Simulated scan of single mutants.
Amino acid sequence: MLEFDFTFFAIAVPAVLFAGVSKGGFGSGASFAATPILALVLPPEMALGILLPLLMLADVTTLGPYWKQWDWPSARNMMLGAIPGVVLAVLIYRMTNPDVFRFLIGAVAIAFVFWQLALKYKLITLRVRPVSNTTGYVAGATAGFASFVSHAGGPPVAVYLLAQGMGKTTFQATTVITFWVINCLKFVPYAFLGIFSWDTFKADLFLAPFMVIGALLGVKAHHLLPERYFFGLTYVLLMMTGSKLIWDALT
């Protein structure tokens, strides 16, 4: 039985606000951090069950402001790739230690930031060019799997989109539509696996307003920040999320 006491709200409200801001304005890269924060006071499965409907609420809240501003080919590739990623996660959810995948995803996120720094300081030179459809499928499959087991699909999506050199709003809008589909794919398997409960439903009712507020604040912050600061912050978030994933995997 989940107790809705001061400790729960002191941990859950900031975590949900943070996830909403990340979802609304900064590509979802750091929104996964709400899961381990909630897991400080809740069983991990309950943390997953509470967050999925809230993340879907953030998706709905931000679809309007970014409507049709996404890069559809990139979003489509990742959506198609996410289907086998989610299916695989469902099949092995009870059998496989997800720490291996957390470590790999975190390593890719951090390596990408160093790659971008090398480009910025002209340690290497490379022209931005469209990436292959296959790369999008792989990014989507990785995001689908990681999102299912820990709501940590942001880094592979960010790596795939940032590598194409797209503008900040196109980047953000593409993450919004992509994760709306991925989160919808996760909902039914979560229900069948027993991840949802009456307690998670009650928690969602209490926390839903904070997710909406966070998402709207994120949309506002997205439009206020200049593009170079936006991507600078995105790289910081990638470093944070990548490091946290590796830490979680190792500890």
Rank of each mutant, 00 (worst) to 15 (best):
L123D: 10
L123M: 14
T125G: 09
R127V: 12
R127Q: 14
V128T: 15
S132C: 01
N133S: 15
T134E: 10
T135G: 14
T135D: 15
T135P: 08
G136E: 13
V138T: 11
G140W: 03
G140D: 02
A141N: 04
A143I: 02
G144E: 03
A146F: 05
S150Q: 09
H151G: 05
G153R: 05
P155Q: 00
P155I: 01
P155A: 01
P156T: 00
V159N: 01
L161D: 06
G165D: 14
M166L: 14
M166K: 14
G167N: 12
G167Q: 12
K168L: 09
T170L: 10
F171W: 10
F171K: 04
F171P: 07
A173I: 10
A173E: 02
V176M: 10
T178C: 09
T178K: 06
F179H: 05
F179C: 01
V181D: 03
N183V: 02
N183H: 04
C184W: 07
V188F: 14
V188P: 06
P189T: 08
Y190A: 02
F192V: 12
W198I: 15
W198V: 15
D199E: 15
K202I: 15
A203Y: 12
D204R: 10
A208D: 01
A208K: 04
P209A: 05
F210T: 07
M211H: 03
M211C: 03
V212F: 13
G214Y: 03
A215K: 05
L216K: 14
G218L: 00
G218D: 02
V219L: 02
V219W: 00
V219A: 02
V219F: 00
H222G: 04
